[in-house]
Computed example of a mutant assay.
Amino acid sequence: MTTDDPATDRTGREDFPDWLRQLERDIRPGPGVRLRIWCRRRSRRLKGGAAVLVVLALLAGAAAYRSGQLWRPGPAAHAAAASGATASPAAGTGATASPAPAAGPFAGTPAAGWPAGPAGIVLPPAHRAGDFTAAQVSAGLAQVRAALLTARLDRAFMAGRDPDPLLRHFAPAARASVRKDYTTETIATYATRLAPDARLAPDPPRVSGRITYQATRDSNGVRELAVTTNFVWVYGFRDPGARSGYSVVLLHDTVVWHLPYPDDVAAASRGLWLYDMSSYGWGLDCGTIRQGLVRPGGLDPAAAPFPEDPEALYDPDHPIAVPTHC
């Protein structure tokens, strides 16, 4: 049998897991940014149990997964129109002006041509990995995709105040820690909760990224399937104060999910666990994100210029660690 006692590991042995043996905090401020960016990194392992920019690096051994969290500017002007966004005049028409850009929150951003919603989460082919059969890998990947759909794309969950739709995707023994995250800033690292006054546009969020996996073992020798998800999520919000009527918020996260080999753990530990995660965000409000809530932020005229092209932040290969602060 498993127990909620942290002194019991997932195999049922009475032993303090590695993540309870260390707690370290490291907060590194960097230069200010234009359009208020807030970025936080923290780390903690659940195994065994975002204008100004913030980088908060927190190694939290007490729950032991890593989460590098969010930095943000205001809903500022998107740097440059996406490549190819302006069409050329039709041949033979004598037209001298380009047609108006398409309406919608993502027009003129790099996300304009991205897949909408679930279409952006594409699973890799499932092959045997270590002792995990292709069928087990396929089932594990499907569990991760289902968790992502709820955590980042389900409007009812994002606008609601009930963590249960998210909790059900995790191993029973992992749910207490996820529930604890739900009312803190940590939740924004791997799930989206909307502030009460935030209103999403009808357009589905745009999604770009990839999923990889490998077989591994934990410090107790438990076989695990490690699934790494790296996605940029771009949300359109209704914004009466913006010229277009919309604002855009970007979240980029990298999350490592672990699924223990069923025979190696007790029943309550079978399923998804958060192992390692990091993220940043753009266009977020600093105040609400500290409560784990997402809504568009405002401009900060006193902020220093952002040191790179904001469009680069849409790239899933952009480093998560952004050395600037709130």
Rank of each mutant, 00 (worst) to 15 (best):
A302D: 13
L225H: 00
E24D: 00
S278H: 03
G113T: 09
D4K: 01
A312L: 09
L293F: 08
L35E: 02
D18S: 02
T11I: 07
L274V: 12
S244W: 14
L293W: 13
T183H: 12
G74L: 02
L200N: 02
V222H: 07
Q214A: 01
A100P: 04
S138A: 13
A242Q: 11
D154Y: 11
G209P: 13
D164G: 09
S43A: 11
A266T: 15
L313R: 03
R36Q: 04
G140W: 13
V178M: 04
R193A: 06
R21G: 03
R72L: 14
I121V: 03
R223K: 07
P118H: 02
A268V: 08
L23S: 13
G113P: 05
L59T: 15
P75T: 06
R152M: 10
A174V: 00
S98I: 06
E185K: 14
G117F: 07
V55T: 13
Y182M: 04
C39R: 13
P31Q: 09
T229L: 03
W19E: 13
V249A: 07
A139K: 03
R155Q: 00
E185L: 14
W233C: 07
P115V: 02
G287T: 06
L35P: 03
Q136W: 02
P301C: 12
I320G: 08
R206I: 11
G281V: 11
Y190K: 01
A77W: 10
A81M: 14
P99Y: 15
E308Q: 05
P260V: 02
P6W: 05
V294S: 05
P323S: 05
A129D: 02
Y65C: 03
A129C: 05
Y275P: 04
W233Y: 05
A103E: 15
P301K: 10
R13T: 08
R243E: 14
W38R: 10
Q136D: 09
C326Y: 01
Y182D: 09
A112N: 11
H318V: 03
P163I: 08
A312F: 04
L293G: 09
G30A: 08
L58R: 14
T150V: 15
S98E: 06
R168Q: 12
W233P: 06
A64W: 10
V249S: 00
Q291P: 13
D309F: 08
R210S: 00
D154K: 10
M158E: 04
P319S: 03
G140Q: 06
D15E: 15
A129L: 00
P319Y: 00
F231H: 06
Y261P: 05
L250Y: 00
H318W: 07
T183E: 06
D239Y: 07
C39Q: 12
A266Q: 04
R295C: 01
P89E: 15
D131P: 12
P316C: 10
L313Y: 06
S67N: 13
T3S: 14
G298D: 06
G92Q: 12
R223P: 09
L153R: 05
R45N: 02
